[in-house]
Simulated scan of single mutants.
Amino acid sequence: MSDLEERFADAVAAIGRVLKTHGFRKKRYVWTRVGDGVVHEVDLQRSHGNSPDSVRFYVNASAYVAAFARAIGDRVPENLASATAQYSTRFETISEWPTDRVDMERDAEAVSSALPSAIEQVVTHLDGITDEASLARTLFDSGSFLDDDLFAWFCATGRLADARAQFAAARERFGTQDRWPRLAANFDETAQKYGVALS
């Protein structure tokens, strides 16, 4: 094993120590925590450009809420850990880690100090996703204005002001693009399904 691969193994171990204390279970480079209808997951994604002289990886965080799925008519699997996450983000967007990846050469010192702290911040973020409403808030706050399931959930649960706010945010962000008529039609189709008027 090369020196960089040994450092990578140390980084995996450092992440694992943090996540284990918060109830996550590890399978290869994926840590999963299943609660009451909620799944939180943290995974490492090795860079495709890795070589013996360059080892880098990304950290992803995701969440799934069964009640959110049920509200919009999606099937909930018996094994919640096998469900497709409704929310996913990279750890640099929810922690103080300064770049979009961990580079085992550049970040050698940070692996033992800043990386565990960043993973704690990731856990704190996931701890805030406890039910369908907090999942919806997280999706909206993260800028997922084109998320069909989020819009459907707002409509299905009678949160009409939130549905209209998502549509308005999407129109402001994407309204000048050529694809906007198609996107707007998707919003309108979902709104009509639930009897919601967008204006």
Rank of each mutant, 00 (worst) to 15 (best):
Leu4Ile: 13
Ala66Arg: 01
Arg179Lys: 07
Trp97Leu: 11
Asp131Asn: 09
His22Cys: 08
Ala185Thr: 01
Val123Thr: 02
Asp149Tyr: 14
Asn186Pro: 00
Glu6Met: 13
Ala184Ser: 00
Val65Asp: 06
Gln86Ala: 12
Thr84Val: 11
Phe91Lys: 01
Leu150Asp: 01
Leu4Cys: 01
Thr99Trp: 12
Ser54Ala: 08
Tyr87Asn: 08
Glu172Asp: 03
Thr21His: 10
Ser113Pro: 04
Met104Arg: 00
Arg101Ile: 13
Phe145Pro: 05
Phe151Val: 15
Thr190Ile: 15
Thr130His: 03
Ala85Asp: 15
Ala108Pro: 04
Leu115Phe: 03
Thr157Val: 14
Ser62Thr: 09
Phe24Gly: 00
Phe140Ala: 01
Asp178Lys: 06
Val111Ile: 15
Gly73Met: 07
Glu172Pro: 09
Arg182Leu: 06
Asp100Cys: 08
Arg171Ser: 06
Arg182Glu: 08
Arg46Lys: 12
Val18Cys: 04
Gln177Pro: 00
Ala170Trp: 07
Val42Arg: 01
Arg90Ser: 07
Thr93His: 15
Leu4Arg: 01
Ser199Met: 09
Gly195Pro: 05
Val59Phe: 10
Lys193Gly: 07
Gly73His: 09
Asp147Leu: 14
Gly37Pro: 07
Tyr64Asp: 05
Ala83Lys: 13
Gly195Thr: 08
Val30Ile: 15
Val34Pro: 04
His40Asp: 05
Ala9His: 05
Arg173Met: 04
Ala191His: 00
Glu120Thr: 03
Val34Cys: 05
Lys20Gly: 09
Leu183Val: 14
Asp147Gln: 07
Ala81Met: 12
Ser51Val: 10
Tyr87Gly: 08
Val102Cys: 05
Pro98His: 06
Val12Lys: 05
Pro98Trp: 15
Arg179Gly: 10
Ala133Tyr: 08
Thr190Gly: 00
Gln192Ala: 10
Ala184Val: 04
Glu189Gln: 04
Ser62Phe: 10
Asp141Thr: 09
Trp180Cys: 01
Tyr87Leu: 13
Ala66His: 07
Ala69Asn: 02
Ala67Leu: 12
Gly195Tyr: 01
Pro116Lys: 02
Ala191Tyr: 02
Asp43Asn: 13
Leu44Lys: 03
Phe145Gly: 00
Asp178Val: 13
Gly158Leu: 06
